[in-house]
Amino acid sequence: MTGETRYVTLPSPTASGSRLGVPQGTQFGGLYAREILRTFRNPWVLVITLVQPFMWLAFFGSSFANVPLAELEALLHIKIQGYLQFLLPGTLSTSMLSIGMFGSMSTIQDKRFGYMKRILLTPTSKATVFLAKALGSATRGLVQIPVMVVAALVFGVRFYGDPIMWAGWVLGLTLLGFGFSCLFLAVTASSTDWQTPGVISNFITMPLMFASNALFPAANFPKWMQYIAAWNPVSYSALFGRGIIVQGVADWTYLGYIAIFAALMMVAGTLVAARYLKVE
């Protein structure tokens, strides 16, 4: 040790929260800001996030273009202006299924490049890291909403509903995206392999997309698929949005179901992450 110590006097940063449990608000803010900034600084992530649902509308939305409207309405069990109008709330709902992939990939990148160590060697809990990633993913997914709505307007779709209903619709999509991001991140919490998110994405997305009211009405499904669709939160979100923009009617119980789904996923995911989130 040194005999004569000459300490440089630097202005001391004031640290807060030296009690036993360290509050996590600031850390959450920092982590969330990091997620968002990283997304918006990478133009390609944005472009793909935006183009993918747009292509859904353009290609899938045109698949019944030559079917007479009356036949289509009989098939879809609803009075509509065109398939695109039916499809829009569904597509936005199904696109919330896979946005968890972004959060999951950014988590794996942090593990592989060691940044997770940098975070976890500060008084930041694994649960905070998890929630920031999940909300970051959901936020990324929200960017799709205005783009899709504008695109649908360009394709000539007419919308109904009032601003409160629309706010509820956006909230529902946010909660759905957040819930699926939590699910996604929890499933990949202990993974460090780049390939996992893609595999899990296919695994989660395919069945939940088709076994829902998002693309076609469940009334046409066989019994077993109707059973899945009845429990599938994607169905609630699609029906909720469809009621608003096609008929101008909001059934708020759907929003309640989605909120319960998001809350369950958040609690379960946080518990899983606190236990199993790998550092490297």
């Binding site: 202005p11 940063p13 004031t14 640290a15 807060s16 929260g17 360290v22 509050p23 600031t26 850390q27 803010g29 920092g30 982590l31 800001a33 990091r34 940098r118 975070i119 500060t122 008084p123 930041t124």
Partner: peptide
């Protein structure tokens, strides 16, 4: 970011 993780105000 480090300041955020360490909860530093000033």
């Amino acid at each position: 970011l480090q300041a955020k993780f360490q909860r530093l105000a000033d």
